[in-house]
Nucleic acid binder design. Structure first.
Length: 616
RNA sequence: GCCACCUUAGCUCAGUUGGCUAGAGCAUCGGUUUUGUAAACCGAGGGUCGUCGGUUCGAAUCCGACAGGUGGCUCCA
């Protein structure tokens, strides 16, 4: 298996070389960055100077690649002394390669920042300076590269250029921007087709598309970008999900608080966010006073003011505040993305104020809430333990950090969480656990999070009185179970393809009349009233359409239960509910008394199950 | 913010090299029909072709700016 992956990786990486060779033939002045294999193919970072690649060029690049592949040129490995290689890079006008070579010569690695050497697919990583580097040559094209490659250009499988985008050299905004040319590549045509097909299928469950089809949220140019408006149906999801989060938290000892959405600038100057968030803050001008106000980009400083309002005893700790509220960040335009990245962010936010020796219990309790929540939602997640690195970008006592990181990893281990450690991902104020979930296109998003904070208690001079009468500094934990409700919903819509379980479904039951005759519509409406009395969300469709068409509308709307009401139902007092396929446990639903049916659905909603209990 | 691309009716999309009153399906509304588990039939309304400006005898079509969006980069929940 691993061998197969290596082989596929070599193919993809070889295709990157072939693509670069093709681009160089078409644009001889092209300068090249790195060209690794990636999850579904390969890319190469290319700088054409004034000229720019666009999708219109794909045809001729692919044609040129086909020629190279047709020639079946062997990939020849060569070793060069590093100084010789640097001279080569200079001579052939490849400044990016020259920079990589200089790094190699100096430190033996091209790894800048957090890029993984293997992922870069370029040259060997190591910790000592090197003096020999490897090159691969196919036809006239020669490239600094550690390999491995397939034997020859004829052995690369099937590929297709997909897109071109910008990418800063070495991932740094201050560096020049290159163009990243992406292609998909697989061993066989069939696999490539399957992959492209899968991407098409993923589009069908795209949350933006389903959000519109299922009438969950809208955007308005007049309101502004990144500012979603939730419809009645979308608001049901919002209330249910945030309600569930609050229910879990309340059980964990959290108390609800409420704060205004603006504050004087001074609050964030004290917290440090004024400097850190700077341009992301929405400013609000008072016309009555000279105060500068700010729309809150987070809630912790407000919650801190509630804690700080009076002296606190160690007996009160932990103090746990929760609040589902909206915060606002003025994101740069290009960073917005459907509901995944918005400017008005609803968060099931909470803050714990506690003693250092209480953080293990708190982290465990919160981690269990996360497990419960994602368990009920039937979603898999990976936990990223985001720890500090050796840099001095972090505030607080390193000894406290060390202690906390050990505790955090311990909690993850004890609870059997699927986790990985990432150093350098910590917040400047403390280590954290981020819960990562995957969308329809396989992109990972951070949802739930719990973060330790040594810094804000310090900045705001928070204190509690210890048993010995001394004044001590509490630590803070920031936590969110859903994280951004908007982002969560985006992932969740794609996860379920819009087929929400009964407890979340905006409409749980659709009642369809067989015609528009008085007794039948009257019965349908009475039934709907009965359902509403049980707290169910139900709609009656007594429109002048065929039963088939009305059934179809309910199917497309992904309503969990549909029932058709005609004379039979009135006479027998029983219905044969149509059960949405993903919930059914057997093919043929059975007749059930009306009362029994409604009670069962109400119970399913209350217990948040995914499968129906209606059968045989 | 940066790179590439996209924007025609509420939605999904046609609209040949610039050239008659800009089309279709679904949805909506009206009528006929009174319907039994994934689309009955007939008809009507609905678009200053994202906005503004330019080129041209003539622009949905060509150019520019702006707005909104998509995929990435950077940043981030």
């Amino acid at each position: 298996m691993a061998e197969q992956n290596d082989q596929l990786g070599a193919m993809r990486h070889s295709l990157a070389h072939i693509m670069a060779a093709a681009v160089q033939k078409l644009w001889p002045e092209a300068k090249f960055g790195v060209g690794p294999a990636v999850a579904d193919g390969f890319y190469y970072d290319i700088d054409l100077g004034e000229a720019k690649l666009s999708e219109e060029d794909f045809g001729k690049i692919e044609a040129e690649m086909a020629k190279i592949i047709g020639d079946d040129q062997p990939f020849e490995r060569q070793e060069k002394a590093v100084d010789e290689a640097i001279a080569w890079a200079k001579e052939s006008g490849q400044p990016y390669k020259e920079e990589l070579l200089n790094d190699l010569k100096r430190s033996g690695t091209t790894v800048a920042k957090d890029l993984d050497a293997a992922e870069m697919g370029t040259i060997s990583g190591g910790d000592a300076a090197v003096d020999q580097v490897s090159f691969y040559k196919n036809g006239d094209f020669i490239d600094l590269c550690r390999g491995p490659h397939v034997e020859s250009t004829g052995k690369v499988g099937a590929f297709k250029l997909l897109r071109v985008s910008g990418a800063y050299w070495r991932g740094n905004e201050k560096n020049p921007q290159m163009q990243r040319l992406y292609g998909a590549a697989f061993a066989t045509d069939k696999e490539l087709r399957q992959h492209l097909n899968m991407l098409e299928e993923a589009k069908k469950r795209d949350h933006r598309r389903l959000g519109q089809e299922l009438d969950l949220f809208v955007f308005s140019d007049m309101v502004g970008s990144g500012l979603p408006l939730f419809t009645p149906r979308g608001t049901v999801l919002r209330d249910q999900l945030l309600g569930f989060s609050e229910e879990l938290q309340r059980a964990g000892g959290f108390q609800k608080v409420a704060i205004p959405h603006i504050t004087k600038q001074a609050l964030y100057e004290r917290s440090g966010h004024w400097d850190k968030f700077g341009e992301e803050l929405f400013l609000v001008k008072s016309q009555e006073t000279s105060d500068q106000f700010v729309l809150k980009p987070m809630n912790c400083p407000h919650h801190i003011q509630i804690y700080a309002a009076r002296p606190r005893s160690y007996r009160e700790l932990p103090i746990r505040y929760m609040e589902s509220t909206v915060q606002y960040r003025d994101e740069k335009k290009g960073e917005l993305n459907g509901l995944s990245r918005v400017r008005a962010i609803s968060i099931d936010d909470a803050h714990v104020f506690c003693m250092l020796e209480q953080i293990e219990a708190e982290f465990t309790s919160i981690m269990n809430m996360i497990k419960d929540m994602y368990g009920v939602l039937d979603m898999k997640f990976r936990a990223r333990l985001s720890f500090r690195d050796d840099s001095d970008a972090y505030l607080g006592d390193p000894a406290d950090w060390e202690k906390a990181q050990v505790i955090i990893e311990d909690v993850a281990k004890k609870l059997g969480i699927d986790y990985f450690v990432e150093t350098g991902e910590a917040a400047f104020y403390g280590p954290k656990i981020d819960i990562m979930v995957t969308d329809a296109l396989g992109r990972e998003w951070q949802c739930a999070t719990q973060q330790l904070d040594f810094v804000q208690p310090e900045r705001f001079g928070l204190a509690y009185v210890a048993a010995d009468g001394s004044e001590q500094r509490p630590v803070m934990i920031h936590k969110a179970l859903l994280g951004s409700f908007e982002r969560f919903l985006a992932v969740y819509i794609e996860h379920t393809a819009g087929r929400f379980p009964v407890w979340l479904a905006p409409e749980q039951i659709r009642v369809i009349t067989v015609n528009q005759e008085g007794p039948i519509t009257a019965f349908a409406k009475k039934l709907a009233d009965q359902a509403r009395e049980l707290g169910l969300r139900v709609e009656v469709d007594d429109s002048n359409e065929s039963v088939g068409k009305k059934i179809r509308a309910a199917e497309i709307g992904k309503v969990p239960y549909t029932m058709v009401i005609g004379e039979k139902e009135i006479a027998g007092g029983e219905v044969v509910p149509r059960i949405r396929k993903d919930m059914a446990v057997q093919d043929e639903p059975a007749a059930v008394g009306v009362e029994q049916f409604l009670k069962t659905v109400a119970h399913e909603a209350k217990s948040r199950v995914h499968k129906t209990s209606l059968h045989g």
